[in-house]
């Protein structure tokens, strides 16, 4: 807290804040608006299972979109809806920018599509090749090789299994919306309960 005050005072003194009403944060420092997130998501957005998913590794675009969705009730969650409401002004941008800048601690070497032709594991095959007999595209088409994510498509690699599962179920029962043309709901609704479990574990273990 002291450090923050010092930083803000220094910023004010140096005159950077002159153009804006809100103090400009030095690169890398946690903005005050993000402090509320820490108890569930961790100081570096590393996630605390089962309180909150990992935010590190998600894009700023994705985090801010989801916060807007919580605010508008497009994405329903008893904890996150009121939390998101606390973010006013450019709070959302600050939080999104801070957590998206955090590094994921474990390195994943992406498996590029085509490298492997056959998969003994049905779940890996579903993730990499989909099941078009059911109109199911491969997860990696949108979420990227090894589910690394990018833009509006969240990273799945190394995310908590419990969280991935909860989200797939939320897509299925409509508690989570906001995907363009219902693309993700369409995919989730074609998955069996066993596949939801298996995919959640599969991506969580890509570390």
């Amino acid at each position: 807290m002291k450090i923050n005050t010092l930083v803000i005072s220094l910023t004010l003194v140096s005159g950077y804040a002159a153009a804006s009403d809100t103090p400009v944060q030095p690169t890398g420092a946690m903005p005050p608006s993000a402090q509320l997130c820490v108890s569930c998501h961790g100081a570096q957005g590393e996630g605390i299972e089962p309180l909150g998913p990992r935010l590190a590794g998600l894009s700023s675009e994705y985090i801010s979109t989801q916060l807007h969705h919580f605010q508008k009730g497009i994405r329903q969650n008893a904890t996150m809806m009121p939390m998101a409401m606390t973010l006013q002004g450019d709070g959302i941008e600050q939080v999104a920018s801070y957590f998206s800048a955090q590094q994921v601690k474990t390195q994943v070497t992406p498996l590029i599509r085509g490298k492997q032709v056959t998969f003994a594991d049905d779940t890996a095959r579903l993730a990499y090749q989909g099941d078009w007999s059911r109109g199911l595209p491969a997860c990696v088409t949108c979420h990227g090789p090894s589910g690394l994510g990018g833009g509006l498509f969240p990273r799945l690699a190394g995310q908590q299994a419990s969280y991935i599962k909860t989200q797939l179920l939320a897509w299925q029962d409509g508690a989570r919306k906001g995907d363009v043309d219902g693309m993700m709901a369409n995919v989730a609704n074609k998955l069996t309960a066993a596949e939801v479990d298996a995919l959640a574990t599969y991506f969580a273990n890509l570390k």
Partner: peptide, 18 residues
């Protein structure tokens, strides 16, 4: 959403799956 505002698609890990 997938192909980007400018039609240039989206690359993840260098792969333009979109």
């Amino acid at each position: 959403t997938c192909h980007s505002v400018d039609g240039q698609g989206q690359a993840i890990a260098g792969v333009y799956a979109l």
